[in-house]
């Protein structure tokens, strides 16, 4: 039984091969009875072909380079955005206090390489408060907070004239709610680049 199936399959293959050959409308090339004279070598078309091949290669290479460049640019943009976000990260304060908390030092330290990479960069530190105390005293307290942030950065080597300080008191809350969590997020120092960082350079 197996032998029969195999012979049937072979027969089918032979038929299909013949059919395929027959269907090709290619002119039948008869075996040449006379010696074939080689056609004259066409330098122009060879050049053209070579140029086309090279152009295609170049286009491909350029596309690859562009793609790589775009990817690199995207990576850079992402890195810059990340660095800027890192730089903009606020520092937080305790109620009615303006000293830099121990757990906030790392946030400030992370900004130092960005100052180093962008030596012309100038920034504004804005001090904010929660809305629990006196509205007016909060303006003064916000100023103290901004000043403490500046003092920290100056002691870490940043030139004084690169940092402006300003207070918004309780007038611009990050979270406009009345609870411990919101208050904690509103007692903050914010960082804004105001000049000298375009283009923004990444720290090494």
């Amino acid at each position: 039984m197996h032998a029969r199936i195999r012979s049937l399959a072979l027969a089918a293959l032979a038929v299909s091969a013949m059919t395929t050959t027959a269907c090709k409308k290619k002119p039948v090339v008869a075996p040449a009875p006379t010696p074939v004279v080689a056609p004259p070598f066409n330098q122009d078309s060879a050049n053209a072909a070579e140029a086309a091949r090279r152009a295609a290669a170049e286009t491909a290479a350029k596309a690859a380079a562009d793609r790589a460049a775009a990817e690199a640019a995207a990576r850079l943009a992402a890195a810059v955005a990340a660095a800027k976000a890192e730089f903009a990260m606020p520092v937080y304060f305790d109620y009615d206090m303006s000293n830099i908390r121990d757990d906030q030092r790392a946030t400030l330290e992370a900004k130092l390489p960005i100052f180093a990479a962008n030596p012309d960069m100038r920034i504004r530190v804005a001090g904010h408060t929660d809305n629990r105390g006196s509205d007016e005293y909060n303006l003064a307290l916000g100023q103290r907070r901004a000043a403490e942030v500046k003092r920290y950065l100056v002691t870490r080597g940043i030139a004084e004239d690169r940092i402006d300080v300003v207070s918004f008191g309780e007038e611009r809350p990050a979270v406009a709610q009345d609870n411990e969590d919101a208050w904690g997020k509103n007692r903050r120092g914010e960082f804004e680049i105001i000049a000298g960082a375009n283009p923004f350079k990444l720290p090494r």
Binding site: R124, E136, L139, A140, G142, Q143, R144, A147, R151, D164, V165, V166, S167
Partner: peptide
């Protein structure tokens, strides 16, 4: 005087304006 100039008050004779300002504290 710097970026923070707040809480004005006039003297009773109107000739002086007092306010709070400063860069470090106020």
């Amino acid at each position: 005087l710097g970026g923070t100039n707040i809480t004005p008050a006039f003297s009773p004779d109107g000739s002086t304006l007092l306010f709070s300002a400063g860069d470090d504290g106020t």
